[in-house]
Amino acid sequence: MTRSTIELPVTADDYRIARYAAAAIALTVAEAALPSPLPGIKPGLANIIVLVVLTRYGWTDAAWVSLLRVVAGSLVIGQFLAPGFFLALAGALCSLAVLALAQHLPPRVFGPVSASVLAAFAHIGGQIALARIWLVPHDGVFYLLPLFATAALVFGTINGLVAARLLAIPVTAAVTSPATPSSVKAAP
């Protein structure tokens, strides 16, 4: 491989965000292979990563991971700039906005499950709002709202439980220490 002539300074934060984003993208791609009963109803497994990052490293990192996931994930599955991409983006932006508020909930009373369920509802809210404004020019989309809300509740709870379980384990050295540049270059 030709050695790059430009060197971009990369911080440990960048590596960490990139690694979590890669995990989120992998889950997005895996999920794209699952059949869906209705367009728009998906487990949203990548949001587990977003929740973990939100709790461990704060909202800014979570926003990076979430938006990188939307952009890169759509590139990988060939949806970039297709309607599905904009719906996912609207959902991600809305759920990030709600998570920005939800992270201020008292942590003694509310855990990741609350954040996950709230974010899931915001996600479908954003998607349905965009679909109504842009794709479906009548109120017929709201007819599907109960189904989407049920899916959001179910998958939001499951994702939140998985995130809570992951967060219940103490952070290992592997997660906190920055990846060395050599290990990153070794990756194919």
Partner: peptide
């Protein structure tokens, strides 16, 4: 990806933590 592998390792390490305790 590294991040996912870590999460998978964590999930395995979690063992039999009851789900109920994860809900506040």
């Amino acid at each position: 990806p590294d991040g996912l592998r870590e999460l998978l390792a964590h999930a395995t390490a979690a063992g039999h933590l009851p789900w109920r305790r994860l809900l506040k």
